[in-house]
Design a protein around this nucleic acid. Structure first.
Lengths: 181, 181
DNA sequence: ACCTGAACACCGTTCAAGT
DNA sequence: ACCTGAACACCGTTCAAGT
């Protein structure tokens, strides 16, 4: 019988369901059906549903931040160029759905909240560094970092029309505001 | 027996659960237990769980936006003062949890998404009006509105430390950046 | 007019039993 | 080492029966 599943396969299925429907969408029985096994078999790989969700969280915490920072650091140019690269990366990434679901989960779970706080801290530190390098006035750096990070995150939750201007154009204008262009 | 419940009581209980735990937290059986009746009685007041959630959404759509705009309009001062009032109101309101849960719900439900879009549209229109009145450069208005609205919304999802500066101070600085102080 | 109680399907969890 | 199947508790929904 070729119906054996690895822990990794369960985690991948969980991540897909999590991105699509949030924590509530991660159902042991449905995942089992999708993987072609009975739900009982789940409990050989994980102690319970929570352990599976923890594995999902851990996967994100370990490489979610580092991946983006590495990609930006590998790109050419000065701090200003890197800020624009970051802007493009973050707004185009397919992991938005995942992060949105994660932040919602964090509302009801202190452990998740702590993990998010750590990642936000790292990302903000990196933003601060780039902004300072780019020559943004030091007493404005903190406010501008927060504005930029808020737009990055808040953008996933906001869906408005901008009249004549395209959304892409408005986002580019926003960066100009922050970088004193 | 004094165990009769009104539709309104079910809705209020649902709003409380929704704010605390999101859509997934709105459980007919648990609400019934809290209201001191059996879950069966729920189906006399509503056709199903979805109808209860729709009532929650409608309550928000009807007065969520208008309430804030009215409060700001009633406050004294020019456009700049009103923007600062809005800033304070939005960042202090106790309805943040509700809105966060709503936006998460919107991710998996088109009807909810449409309602949110309408409200965002109204709020942004009001922001644009205040910004223009305040004398912000017209070609920057759209970007600055989006930045401000994103900070308003994104702030609920972001939890970072700012070093020496207090969060309140950083938020105030951010507004200065947007209003060209 | 509003509620109870029993019924059934769906899901989380356990566990003895299978291969 | 990994899976099945039956069992039980929890929740959404229906509905006949109660007051």
């Amino acid at each position: 019988m070729a119906k054996r599943r690895t822990q990794q396969e369960w985690i991948e299925a969980a991540i897909a369901a999590f991105s699509r429907e949030g924590v509530g969408g991660v159902k042991v029985e449905r995942l089992a059906r999708g993987l072609g096994v009975t739900k009982g078999s789940f409990y050989w790989h994980f102690t319970d549903r929570r352990a599976l969700l923890d594995a999902v969280l851990e996967a994100w915490a370990e490489q979610g931040t580092a991946a983006i920072i590495d990609a930006v650091e590998a790109s050419p140019g000065d701090a200003g160029d890197k800020l624009r690269t970051l802007w493009g990366l973050a707004n185009g990434a397919g992991e938005q759905a995942f992060e949105v679901a994660l932040r919602e989960w964090g509302r009801v779970d202190p452990e998740v909240r702590a993990a998010i706080r750590r990642v936000d801290q790292d990302r903000m530190a990196y933003l601060r560094k780039l902004m300072l390098e780019h020559g943004v006035a030091p007493d404005r750096v903190e406010a501008k970092c927060l504005l930029m990070y808020s737009l990055l995150i808040g953008d996933w939750f906001i869906d408005v029309k901008h009249g004549r201007k395209s959304r892409k154009r408005v986002l580019s204008d926003a960066l100009d505001v922050l970088l004193d262009r």
